[in-house]
Deep mutational scan, measured.
Amino acid sequence: EKIKSDFFELLSNHHLDSQSRWSKVKDKVESDPRYKAVDSSSMREDLFKQYIEKIAKNLDSE
């Protein structure tokens, strides 16, 4: 859970929106230790998708 929250924090530093693509974001964040803390690339992508869904819901509710 800490790894997930750290990863979300990392993503939040990059001002993403619901149109952001993992392939582009990954290049910007892959040197960060919070990125490396997530064991697998599929898990990183899953967390990215969860984060994008979360910010999309937040935008819808505003």
Rank of each mutant, 00 (worst) to 15 (best):
E45F: 07
S31F: 10
R44M: 02
P33T: 06
Y51M: 02
W22D: 02
E9I: 04
K24L: 13
S41H: 14
P33M: 07
D46M: 13
L16S: 03
W22N: 02
K28L: 15
D39Q: 14
I52Y: 07
E30W: 08
N58A: 06
K49C: 09
Y51T: 02
E53W: 07
S40D: 13
K57C: 12
S23P: 10
V25P: 01
M43I: 05
D27V: 09
L59D: 11
E30M: 12
R34F: 01
K36D: 10
R44E: 02
N58D: 15
F7S: 01
K49Y: 10
L10S: 02
K4N: 05
M43P: 02
V25D: 02
D46F: 12
H14A: 09
R44D: 01
M43V: 11
S20R: 03
K26L: 05
H14T: 07
M43S: 06
D27R: 11
E45I: 06
S42F: 07
I3K: 10
V25G: 03
L59K: 13
K26C: 05
H14E: 09
E9T: 07
S5W: 07
K24Y: 13
K54V: 08
S5V: 08
Q19Y: 13
S5I: 11
A56G: 15
S42D: 12
N58H: 07
K57P: 13
V29P: 00
I52V: 13
E9W: 03
E62V: 13
E53C: 12
N13L: 12
R34K: 03
S40G: 11
E1D: 12
K28D: 10
R44P: 05
N58P: 14
E53Q: 11
S31G: 12
W22I: 01
E53I: 06
D60V: 10
S12G: 11
K54L: 11
R44W: 01
D46A: 13
S20K: 03
K54D: 05
Y35I: 02
K2S: 09
E9S: 09
S5G: 10
V25S: 03
R21L: 11
S23I: 13
S41W: 05
S42R: 12
V25C: 05
D60L: 06
W22H: 01
L10D: 01
D32Q: 00
S61K: 11
F48S: 03
E53N: 10
V29H: 00
Q19W: 08
K28I: 14
Y51C: 01
D60N: 12
R21K: 14
D6L: 02
K49D: 10
D6S: 04
Q19V: 06
Y51G: 02
S40K: 08
Y51Q: 02
R44Q: 04
N13E: 12
Q50Y: 06
F7Q: 02
V25F: 15
K24Q: 15
D6I: 01
L16Q: 02
N58S: 12
R21W: 04
E62Q: 15
I55T: 10
K54S: 14
V38I: 12
Y51I: 00
Y35P: 01
S41M: 15
L59A: 11
D60F: 08
M43Q: 14
R34I: 02
E9N: 13
E1P: 02
I55G: 10
E9L: 06
K54Q: 08
Y51L: 01
L47I: 03
I3R: 04
S41R: 07
E53A: 13
S23L: 08
R21I: 14
F48P: 03
M43W: 06
Y35W: 05
E30G: 09
F7W: 01
D39N: 14
N58Y: 05
D32K: 00
I52Q: 09
K36F: 06
S61E: 11
S61N: 07
D17E: 05
A37R: 06
L11A: 01
S41I: 08
E45V: 06
D46R: 10
E45S: 05
D32G: 00
L47P: 00
K26Y: 02
A56P: 11
S42H: 10
Y35V: 04
L59W: 08
K54H: 12
S23C: 13
L16K: 02
Q50N: 04
S12I: 02
S5Q: 14
S5H: 08
A37P: 00
D46N: 12
D39H: 09
F7N: 01
F8S: 02
S12P: 00
M43H: 05
S41N: 14
E62P: 15
Q19L: 08
L11N: 01
S18V: 14
I55E: 09
N58I: 07
I52K: 10
P33L: 05
N58T: 14
D32P: 00
W22K: 02
L47K: 01
S31A: 13
D27H: 12
A37V: 04
V25I: 12
D6W: 01
D27T: 14
N58K: 13
L11R: 00
F7T: 01
L47E: 02
N13Q: 15
N13F: 10
F7P: 00
S23M: 11
D60I: 06
Y35E: 01
V29G: 00
D6E: 09
F8R: 02
K49L: 07
K36Y: 05
S41A: 15
V29A: 04
D17H: 08
R44H: 04
K4S: 06
S31W: 06
E1K: 15
